[in-house]
Design a protein around this nucleic acid. Structure first.
Length: 277
DNA sequence: TCCTCCCTGTTC
DNA sequence: GAACAGGGAGGA
């Protein structure tokens, strides 16, 4: 499920395939895959891709048009969304939600596919004005890899569990279930601790852990659970180094205790009762 | 602030 | 044939 490291990997691997390409067509195969605030997909036609980036878990295509307001194509992949290119004329698959026609820099025709098995993902074509009407966008928290260690503590407010706060995209952008559990284990802090009761020292430790885990995962092209692949169809490798995520009931790799699995905010949560307090 | 719903494929 | 996976929207 694409979180920050996976989206970063997709942006990096997709960019060489689409750099300088111009949208020539857009076909939406499932209405609900388009965000309600979006302009029609075919407003992209004639626009050239200048950059592929990321903000939190959102994948951003920066576009250059003729005269009108600059557009961006924003993709939220949620659990099972995939973006990849194909050369020539490929047929949409069972789970293809959108197909774009592209004319590459060298004149070659390509396609950009948005596949999404569970159809939770969304595409959004937007001007800056539209983005500013999207409260999720305007309330996105800072990028964890650009935060200083002391920046986390003041953002951890309220009595809710620390893990719930970490997954709140307005607190810090890009962290989902996997990296929340893994970061908390690395920092040695229980996911159940009330967010507002974290000490300055613990918040620094947690920020360090988050950055370490995210960087390590990016260096291994992310984690592949079931569906995730980068734009070249390759799986990541970070799932092989999970210490708690998906390991409920198994032995803690550090102390041997049995890892506890609970539900927190409706999400599976795994932690070590001895290593995390 | 917490719960349910959205989706579909896989596992129990 | 039910439980589970899960980010975010929207409602209680």
């Amino acid at each position: 499920m694409p979180e920050l490291p996976e989206v970063e990997t997709i942006a990096t691997t997709l960019y060489p395939h689409v750099r300088g390409a111009v949208f020539t067509s857009a076909q939406l195969l499932r209405l609900s895959s388009l965000h309600p605030l979006s302009l029609p997909l075919n407003s992209l036609c004639g626009h050239k891709i200048s950059e592929v980036g990321r903000r939190g878990k959102l994948l951003l295509f920066k576009l250059v048009g003729q005269a009108d307001a600059p557009l961006q194509l924003v993709a939220h992949l949620r659990m099972t969304g995939r973006l990849f290119t194909a050369s020539g004329e490929s047929e949409p698959g069972k789970h293809t939600r959108c197909v774009f026609g592209l004319q590459a820099k060298d004149g070659e025709s390509k396609q950009l596919f948005f596949d999404d098995t569970r159809a939770f993902g969304k595409l959004l074509v937007a001007t800056q004005d539209i983005l500013e009407k999207w409260t999720f966008w305007t309330s996105l928290g800072p990028e964890p890899l650009e935060m200083r260690p002391e920046e986390l503590l003041p953002r951890l407010k309220g009595a809710r569990p620390l893990k719930t706060a970490l997954m709140d995209q307005s607190v810090i952008a890009g962290i989902g279930n996997i990296y929340a559990d893994e970061s908390l284990f690395t920092a040695g802090i229980s996911p159940l601790r009330p967010a507002s009761e974290i000490s300055e020292n613990e918040a620094r430790k947690l920020m360090d852990a988050i950055q370490k885990i995210l960087r390590k995962s990016i260096s291994q092209c992310g984690s592949s659970i079931r569906d995730y692949r980068d734009a070249d169809g390759n799986a990541g490798a970070f799932q092989n180094t999970f210490r708690v995520y998906g390991r409920g009931g198994k032995e803690c790799k550090k102390c041997g205790a049995t890892l506890i699995k609970i539900k927190l905010g409706g999400r599976a949560t795994v932690y070590c009762p001895d290593c995390q307090s």
